[in-house]
Design a protein around this nucleic acid. Sequence first.
DNA 1: CTGAAAGCGCTTACAG
DNA 2: CTGAAAGCGCTTACAG
Lengths: 322, 322
Amino acid sequence: MASVTSADVARAAGVSRTTVSYVLNDTPGASVSEATREHVRTTAARLGYAPSAAARTLRRGRSDLVVCVLPDWPTGPVVDALLDHLTDVLAERGLFVLVHHHRGSRALADLWRAVTPRAVVGLAPFPAADVRAMRQAGIEVVGTAESADSSAFDRSQHDLAVLQVDHLVTRGHRSVAFATTTDDRLRRFGAARFAGVRDTCAARGLPGPPQVPVRADEPATEAVRSWHAQGVTAVAAYNDEVALAVLAGARAAGLIVPDDLAVVGVDDAPAARVAAPALTTVAQPVTPQAEHLATSVLAVLDGHEAPPWPDDPARVVVRAST
Amino acid sequence: MASVTSADVARAAGVSRTTVSYVLNDTPGASVSEATREHVRTTAARLGYAPSAAARTLRRGRSDLVVCVLPDWPTGPVVDALLDHLTDVLAERGLFVLVHHHRGSRALADLWRAVTPRAVVGLAPFPAADVRAMRQAGIEVVGTAESADSSAFDRSQHDLAVLQVDHLVTRGHRSVAFATTTDDRLRRFGAARFAGVRDTCAARGLPGPPQVPVRADEPATEAVRSWHAQGVTAVAAYNDEVALAVLAGARAAGLIVPDDLAVVGVDDAPAARVAAPALTTVAQPVTPQAEHLATSVLAVLDGHEAPPWPDDPARVVVRAST
DNA sequence: CTGAAAGCGCTTACAG
DNA sequence: CTGAAAGCGCTTACAG
């Protein structure tokens, strides 16, 4: 059970621990004969030696770990793409990305008792107190503090809704509803999106839009009937899943999409393209976001400022549902 | 930049490092006056002290980290549920779960140079050499080795396909096709599923089923026409996304589902319930899987054997598409 | 009730 | 070209 240490390797190979360290780390400038190197490597492999990450980190004063804190969001292709790209880019610098699924169960501060990362990457804004604590502990922080500038975070959500409503207005609609998600974890996004819908309706002189929670797993028949009765002719949905439930509701209510009711989603999920009718949606290319995240992390590690968030490249993909 | 250490706290508080450690760790049996405790805590907070995880781990000989290795699969609700439950259960033991998105970019062995987990949890079987290396380094391993018994892993995939085909046969179908995924990351699952379809067709005396890759993001019109021409009356799809593309293909080809073509998916995704027609699918309740995983990890940490995999609770959810 | 000291396993100046 | 020694920051017997 007691692990093999570098001292064991040194003893077995008949050299000093210094030499073992030089060989196994390929320390530049270390002059060790090729024969010795080979002997040390063989011995280490034979004994199944694995260096202690804790000792290494303690001695060097820094680790090769970057922890990415994932809020309690449903994961999917977007989060995957962000993490995959980050993992690849940091691997080139010899760094490993480890993801922490942050849930209410434990305070973030406890995590630093268990692991010392070089940097912490937040996908959502951190509480300001956590940011202070991390910085004080010598951990670089990428991502915004809650109080500071979470507005950029919310604004991009807001803007997706603006695109939806502007598209519907272009199509001639004058009475729009917002179909929001019933997933509590997405409450914050839902609120920002609804604000976008509401603001745009106001700016275009449309009536204040109703906001209705729509489950993704059953046809939104009642909601559709109610909208129709109110004279609503177009629905901006929280995402494609919700939009699909609205399409099903329209079908069940005997309404024709887009003639009786137009529907626009968000995400451009594969299912949007094979819906009946094919779903108009807002696509957010993920590559620029992934590159921005990775670039920001590298910049912070190098002591630079993170670059500004790129212009939001979201766009409407027009299909048959509007 | 130089972090605050426990020695700094001790000096500032006018006590020894021993006392600081006792107070901050609430060491049982340590008799420190309440006044001193309070003073130490205040001082630590004032200085912004954060203990060094590396030193702590080195000294105690074990860390409070469990690393979960995630293969290159698309993430989604199932993986989320597994990780969330594991995170919660281990949090009660004072352990943190960190997830490593394993990609080709770096060898698993390099990871142990950067972090020393108490245990490693694999969702897919590990290469046997990695398992040996981890065990030798004193890391507990939960999950199977590739060579050992990856059959249990593939078998559950196989069985999903059996359920699909048996259901179609019950509905009177005698000629079945398999619509597989085009996602390369799922190749292994696709192969196991096709084997299930093929074996079941053979066992039921049906002709050998064609296997056709179907993209989830466009109507599978050509595939549907070709199946229809061959006399295929039912399709087992890799998952609901693929099944939705088959439904769209049938629509485009002018075929009626389920009269001209029956379709059954896997996953019971929300979109399956709002499809036109509503999609018959195979549901895998995720709770038993999540509990089994968490139980296995706890068992291994306690030095017991992991419990056997629970009886596969997958079942067919019959809707309008078959 | 509190402190001095050892030691976890490594890396890296430094001396030979 | 190689080795003896210091020290990273902690925890924990042990001595007072």
